[in-house]
Write a protein that binds this DNA or RNA. Sequence first.
DNA 1: GTGAGTGCAAAGTGTTTGCACGAGG
DNA 2: CCTCGTGCAAACACTTTGCACTCAC
Lengths: 142, 142
Amino acid sequence: MEKIQELQEIFLKEGLRYTKQRETIWQEINSSTEHRDAEDIYFTLKTRGVATSRATVYRTIEVLVRNNLVRALNIGDGRYRYENKLDQTHHDHLVCTECGKIIEFLNENVEQQQEQVARDHGFTLVRHIHQLFGVCEECQKN
Amino acid sequence: MEKIQELQEIFLKEGLRYTKQRETIWQEINSSTEHRDAEDIYFTLKTRGVATSRATVYRTIEVLVRNNLVRALNIGDGRYRYENKLDQTHHDHLVCTECGKIIEFLNENVEQQQEQVARDHGFTLVRHIHQLFGVCEECQKN
DNA sequence: GTGAGTGCAAAGTGTTTGCACGAGG
DNA sequence: CCTCGTGCAAACACTTTGCACTCAC
């Protein structure tokens, strides 16, 4: 897995130590397209036999987010979800309020309009949150 | 202030009692264009001489939100801000990451695109969060 | 070896809840 | 008067922090 090497290089470059916990937490977030929360990651690590603590999970994620390896997602239910960011293109989220399913989307038109809105108000845009909440096809049937 | 009457009518219609606390909390949120948090409201009520508790603030806001009198805003920093909703048209927010200033905006184009994205994925759109984070003109100078 | 990283438990922060009291209808 | 709303404090959920230990470099 050459991505692991990329991860090691980034850590090296930032003067960060390369530990089993950091590697595994990153792998865990990177292993699927799911949007997992800290508790989820903590328990998965446990079952994978990697000794860890919640503190380490949170601290590691902070490092990963700061280094653009992971993206934190706040869908307004009181806890963060995390998703892989390395090699990922920008996108926003469509969330099903019934089953919690999260779909990623990208709309160039919206991206441009956002820049325009910021310009109109003299702002320099840094980032944005754009989340659509609705009911997915399957849940509409029930 | 005929708005207070409107408030009373809504409470009556919903079978809710009209209490000093509910009136004052609503007035507080309604009194300015600011986007205040619960703690802020709690302290303002205290200085205005209205006996209250945090519990009442949260419970009252919940009632107000449910009855569309107030809108809750999650800007991702761990606490909600509240804004008046009565008579307000829909809008989204542009937040200055330096000074915390919040500007409201509405972009019809974006609104339409959102509907389109939802349709494309078979979702029925219920609500959305759209927040732009950047640095405002004044803060850019510093 | 030595300092960055870790694990633990305790502390924080914002919000919610159980319960007895108080006041609106 | 009887019930809904309130105040208080304790409980909650998620996250952060202090400190001694440990392991990557």
